[in-house]
Computed example of a mutant assay.
Amino acid sequence: MKKGLCLIAMLIFVLYGCAEQKNPPSVQPDMEESFDIAEEPFEPPSPHVFKADPSKFHFIADWLTDTQILYVEKNDGFYTVNYFDIETGESGLVYEDESFIIDVLVHPSGDYLLIHTSEHPTTAAIKIVGKDGAVQHQVEIDSTELGIEWNRTDPKKILFTAFHEDWSYDLFVFDGNDDSLSIVELDDPFPKWAGENRIMTLSFRGHPLDGGDIEIFHMEDGEIETTEIGNAIYFDVLEDSIVSVQSVDAGAFAYTIRKLDGTVAFGWTLPAVSNYSEWIVPSIEWLDEKSLIVIGAEKSGQLDEMESGFNMYFFEKGNSELIIKGLDAGPIKCSPSAKYCLSGYSSDELIDVEAKEKLKWIKFDN
């Protein structure tokens, strides 16, 4: 009887132990919790601020890449072209020259720099420099002021408008394929490239306030092709697309995107701006053939009365989006992908296009 009771007790103990093994002590399972965890929204890092030395700093030039801004300094008798990366804070030397640097442009391909230097008030020296800092081409032009229009398709071709002391001008075409510099007889001092061998001009028949006709000069045979675009006060070209601006009346500018064959893609209107005797068309930056970043006035009026009355817009295929308000009429310079733009007459303001924010990226240490 005792043996039977012991056997029963042992069976109960074993069964109880098995039951305990089927329900082990509680542990945290390696799986997602059933309740949601609130995540903080992602905020991109703020751009680094470049601390400039005012005793050395010369000017802000252009975008080298999507995040690197070119600026010019004078160091130990040399003028240096440097970059500052607003996302990493890194800086470095790109090019240096003993001559006074007036301007620096970056070709749309990103492969070349144009360095405009001068050692005399009536002479300009232009150097085309590769990424390695080596001078590829060099040309000198007599001028007191120089307008430069770089061919987007062929970086070896450049239009130069050489203004003289009496404001007369000569228009030159430089061709780096044979290092030739030739004069072109056109009435427009500010023509634009419309391909490798075509130049687009604005021909005024009457008062400039009434606008002019857009024409195309063919370099190969010297022929001038007329277009159906009249009363234009401004134009710009990207590949096979042209944006023209016409004055609708005293209060509005009409912008139109067309193909070079005349086909209209889309258009819009913005308030007109004048400087008493001439129309003032604020900056336009092409992103591609169907989209642009445009500066427009909040309301029509005289330029010297507007101060910070300008806005930045994004236009694409007929749709518009306001990016930011409260800019001045100074030019804008956008990075290759238009992730950022520099604004202000001295390019000291940084606009984050996606975030729609205006930031200071440069600070002068006194």
Results as ranks from 00 to 15, higher is better:
M1K: 13
K3T: 14
A9S: 15
M10H: 11
L11R: 08
I12C: 12
L15E: 09
C18I: 14
C18E: 10
E20F: 15
E20M: 15
P24W: 01
P25Q: 10
Q28V: 15
P29I: 13
M31E: 14
E33W: 11
F35I: 15
E39P: 09
P44C: 10
F50M: 06
P54G: 07
P54Y: 05
L64P: 03
L64F: 13
L64W: 11
Q68P: 05
L70F: 06
Y71F: 08
V72L: 04
F78Q: 15
V81C: 03
E87C: 07
E87R: 07
S91I: 05
G92S: 09
L93K: 06
V94P: 01
S99D: 14
D103G: 04
V106T: 10
H107M: 03
H107V: 06
S109C: 04
G110L: 05
D111L: 09
Y112V: 08
L113I: 03
L113Y: 02
E119Q: 13
T122M: 10
A124F: 04
A125N: 12
G130M: 08
G133T: 02
A134T: 14
V135W: 00
H137K: 15
V139A: 09
E145T: 13
E149V: 10
W150L: 10
N151S: 09
T153F: 15
D154G: 01
P155T: 03
K156C: 10
F160I: 04
F163C: 06
H164S: 11
S168G: 12
D170L: 09
V173G: 04
F174T: 04
D175F: 07
N177T: 11
L181W: 08
S182C: 09
L186R: 06
L186Y: 11
D187F: 13
D187E: 15
D188L: 07
F190M: 15
A194Q: 01
G195K: 07
G195D: 04
T201D: 00
L202T: 05
G206R: 09
P208M: 05
D210V: 07
D210Y: 08
D213T: 13
E220G: 06
E223M: 11
I233H: 03
F235K: 01
V243E: 04
S244K: 00
S247N: 08
V248H: 09
V248L: 14
G251P: 03
Y255G: 00
I257A: 05
L260Y: 04
D261T: 04
P271Y: 01
V273W: 01
S277Y: 14
W279S: 02
D288Q: 10
V294F: 07
K299M: 15
D304V: 15
E305T: 12
G309I: 02
G309F: 00
K317C: 02
E321I: 01
K325N: 13
G326T: 04
G330R: 04
G330M: 03
P331Y: 12
L342K: 02
S343M: 06
S346V: 12
S346F: 12
S347Q: 09
D348W: 10
E349I: 11
I351Y: 06
D352C: 06
E354A: 14
A355C: 02
K356H: 10
E357T: 10
I362W: 00
D365V: 13
